[in-house]
Amino acid sequence: MPSRSPQSARRSARTLAVLPPAALALLALVGCHRDMYDQPRLEPLEKNAFFDDGRSSRPLVEGVVEYGAISPDSVILTGKVNGQLTDELPPELKLDAVLLKRGEQRFNIFCSNCHGRSGDGDGMIVLRGYRKPPTYHSERLRGTPIGHFFDVATNGFGVMPSYASQIPVDDRWAIAAYIRALQLTQYAKVDDLSDAERQQLETQPTAATPTPSAP
């Protein structure tokens, strides 16, 4: 190396010799620190040794009432007025298409597994061996006040467990309203139709009830 001094050559040789181990050492450092990944805060349901049962998400103390909560005896939380099942929606809720749509959706998520999508009580879980619930389309359940369906969803009935922790209050009412609509699908009277609807039914009988095909 005629153009470079021996010192500089020695220096670059030394640099070259140091570089790969230094690079490796740097790489080895990568990923060693997990403290940003697992910060000293708790994610929902994360395990925590501080409590004897290991739960960081603490169960509510028995009998606790949410601050500002409505009275636990109100009709929207019990489905009852003076101990009697109510036959109408609580005043906080409005019966409209939105409520019924919501009820349909929630019914299909939480109830149809056993009660079936049409409410006959032949859902998939029943086909797999769960005790068959009664059909909604019986004289008895058609005559039952709407509060009954809310009460059953809230507290359970027979083998059916409470769904209070899975379905919020408003959704339970929406489901109860939808059950009423389901009952109507199987038991609507022609007299209940408006004149226009009845006329439509009479002029287009085949659209509503398909005629059996000729043999």
Binding site: I125, R131, P161, S165
Partner: peptide, 17 residues
């Protein structure tokens, strides 16, 4: 958080099945 069901949710069906 999507929620991991409590054991009670499993038992809604598996108390019978």
């Amino acid at each position: 958080f999507a929620g991991i069901p409590p054991t009670a949710t499993c038992m809604t069906c598996h108390s019978q099945i």
